[in-house]
Design a protein around this nucleic acid. Structure first.
Length: 275
DNA sequence: CTGCAGGCCGGCG
DNA sequence: CGCCGGCCTGCA
């Protein structure tokens, strides 16, 4: 096992914030988390997290990157408070929260599945997809399945997806896998785009709308100026600013909170979802 | 049995 | 452009 010192980090809150679907909680309070190429078990002990894995190669860096532990969130918090001091309670509530750094391909497929779906159902479908097409990993005598790679999904047909019960989303996933494979959709290219450009780029693909594109960019590309707007956000922003239309929230964020609007909206999401 | 869940597409005005 | 009906599936 390895031990990593952490500051302003709450494992429990961060992993349960609804960004990520591939984890389970153990009876001792630790989490089994399925990352791109390995399974890890993480438990927090005050200012430390203790990590075990089936693969210790570069593990510390992978964990630091996944939990975004090297990013100074005080910069964001200060910026947001300068914008509006009334957000103090929400900032304090989220003081130990991080935005995860997820795998782009997994995030794209998972969030396409997420549309008009419940969290439980999303988790089940993503797990089933992984069991059918992902690589098996043994960790502490238990079997886990990694999220499938692009190559592993290459030959999967729409009919195959139907067996998982993905509903009308099956054709979206089929086409996106095909587009990435043939180079029409370039996942690395997104790094060169700013938030707005990246949203337009992703929205060009069937099955990715504003909400899904925003989640992909915030959770897998660190584009902090994009902001997923869902029912919790609408409720929260309505209570704070008395704005209740998606388009108005979008304009407000773009014109006011600007470069860290994604962070603030995620804070608002947590605050109202946990209240 | 209905209603709905962390939206998106496509057709229409 | 904005608006709105329809949509797969699982579960309460």
């Amino acid at each position: 096992m390895i031990k990593i010192k952490v500051n302003n980090f709450d494992l429990n809150m961060t992993i349960n914030s609804g960004q990520f679907f591939r984890f389970s909680k153990e009876s001792n309070g630790s989490y089994n988390i399925i990352l791109k190429d390995r399974v890890v078990n993480v438990i927090q002990d005050n200012n430390y997290i203790i990590v075990e894995s089936n693969n210790y190669d570069n593990l510390e860096n992978i964990i630091i990157n996944f939990f975004d532990l090297n990013t100074d969130y005080n910069v964001f918090n200060k910026y947001i408070l300068e914008f509006d001091i009334n957000l103090k309670d929400i900032i304090n509530f989220n003081n130990n929260f991080k935005i995860l750094n997820m795998e782009p391909f997994e995030t794209i497929i998972s969030y396409i599945i997420s549309q008009r779906n419940s969290v439980n159902n999303i988790t089940n479908k993503v797990n089933k997809l992984s069991e059918l097409y992902g690589s098996k990993v043994i960790f502490k005598d238990k079997e886990y399945y990694l999220f499938p790679t692009l190559k592993q999904l290459e030959k999967v047909s729409i009919e195959d997806y139907k067996l998982i019960g993905l509903g009308y989303r099956d054709k979206y996933i089929y086409n996106i896998v095909k587009d990435i494979n043939c180079g029409k959709l370039n996942l690395n290219y997104i790094n060169n785009l700013n938030g707005k450009e990246a949203i337009d780029y992703l929205k060009g693909y069937s099955g990715i709308g504003l909400k899904v594109a925003s989640c992909i960019l915030l959770f897998a590309y660190r584009k902090y100026d994009v902001f997923p707007i869902d029912t919790w956000i609408i409720k929260g922003v309505n209570e704070i600013y008395n704005i209740n239309k998606v388009e108005c929230i979008k304009n407000y964020c773009e014109n006011n909170i600007n470069k860290y609007s994604g962070i603030l909206l995620q804070y608002i999401f947590n605050y109202y979802r946990n209240k």
